[in-house]
Amino acid sequence: MGCTIIGCGKQLPALDVPNEELTKLVDTTDEWISTRTGILSRRVCVTEGNVDMAEGAARQALGWADGGYSQCKVAPEDIDLVIYSTISPDEMVPTCAAVLRRRLGLVNAAAFDMNAACTGFIYGLTIAETMMAASAPGAPGAAGRNPIRRALVVGGERLTRVVDWADRNTCVLFGDGAGAAVVEWDERKPGILSWFIKNDDDHTNALTCPACFDAPQPFTPEGVDPNALQQADPSIALIDAELDTTERIAAGAPRQVLSMHGQKVFKFATSAMPAAIEEVLRRANLTIDDVQFIVPHQANLRIIKYAAKRMGLPLERFQVSIAHRGNSSSACIPMTLCDAYENGSIHPGDKVVLVGFGGGFTSGAVLYEA
């Protein structure tokens, strides 16, 4: 018995921005971007919000709209849980998950947001599987828990809001989008066979994005002071020091933007992706020869090619969807999974690995039987 994927969907914003358009903003070329990343264009939100895209993706996954992949139409009252992974929410309260729940009429669903950067969808699936297993009939203590039979797991990002469009090292990489999957606990099917999640310390702050809270605070270490409303929050300096962003922000860079040391992130990613795949297979007592298809995070085509070469696999065993999307963080894997179902790369009974890595540093993989 296991947690099975019964539907998935994706939604992209309308605006497509090819590499040539970015030459209006920074000193770069289409050739420079495409040869180093595999990216030809990316989608950018203008009028759409994070939850707008997630709603479209979820409707496909639930079988309510054309597109995507769905084994059946799921009634709104049959969803028990919504897990929404994002680093770029539309709002802090209510959560994106709560807004999505309301829009879709998921009256019985508990809903919450989470953040594990680009590995967020992997983390979300592991949370859903764990909660389903803990509340399944016959599980120890299941009688005292909410029964969770079906869950909606979402990865939604509007990363272009936190991109410094004057930084050519980062602005060429990221895009917006959302993906969603419906998972169901089915005693008749194996579903998720194993999962693996991990954190490594980002000792050198290779990938950061500080928050930016600008409401005036009338406090000093001595207490309430109305004049403090005109002063900078003193804790900001401590955060900047922790993240090594002091010099960059002092030079005039916006505070709440992604900052990345590309070579350090590349080194981490090329190690983390194969390691996560190998570990999730080891936990299931399987080998790479038992796997029919791999759906990786879409950060850089060179990273995917490196992992394929290291594992002795042809690139055709990997779903590659980066060319016209770029890196959309936690939305990458569910959108790419939807692509694989739509183009017929995943068949019933196939063993599939989903694998991701991201800021934090996070990494992880899920192995499941389709």
Rank of each mutant, 00 (worst) to 15 (best):
M1P: 09
C3D: 11
I5L: 14
C8Q: 07
Q11E: 10
L15H: 15
D16M: 14
V17N: 12
V17Q: 12
E21S: 07
E31N: 00
I33K: 14
N50L: 09
M53E: 08
A61C: 12
L62Q: 03
W64E: 09
W64P: 03
G67T: 02
Y69N: 00
Y69C: 01
C72A: 15
P76W: 08
E77L: 13
I79V: 15
I83C: 03
T86V: 12
S88Y: 06
D90P: 11
D90C: 09
E91R: 15
T95W: 07
V99A: 11
R102A: 12
R103E: 00
A110R: 15
F112R: 02
F112T: 09
A116W: 05
C118H: 12
G120K: 07
I122T: 01
I122Q: 08
L125C: 08
A128W: 02
E129M: 05
G141V: 01
G141N: 05
R145T: 03
R150P: 09
V162F: 15
D164Q: 12
W165E: 05
A166V: 12
D167E: 03
T170G: 07
C171Y: 05
C171I: 05
L173H: 10
F174K: 08
A178F: 04
G179F: 07
E184N: 11
D186C: 13
E187S: 14
P190I: 04
L193T: 01
S194L: 10
D201I: 13
H203T: 15
N205M: 14
C209R: 12
C212Q: 15
D214P: 00
F219T: 13
G223V: 06
L229Q: 04
Q230M: 10
Q230T: 13
D233M: 09
D233S: 10
S235G: 03
I239R: 15
E242W: 14
E247G: 05
R248Q: 14
G252S: 05
R255D: 00
Q256A: 13
M260C: 08
K264A: 14
V265S: 07
S271N: 06
V280G: 00
L281T: 06
L281M: 13
R282T: 10
A284M: 10
A284V: 06
L286Y: 06
V291E: 00
I294R: 00
A299V: 03
N300Y: 00
L301T: 02
R302T: 10
A308C: 02
P314F: 06
R325K: 11
G326M: 03
N327K: 06
S328K: 10
S329C: 11
A331F: 10
A331L: 06
T336G: 02
C338W: 07
A340Q: 05
G344H: 05
K351W: 02
G358R: 04
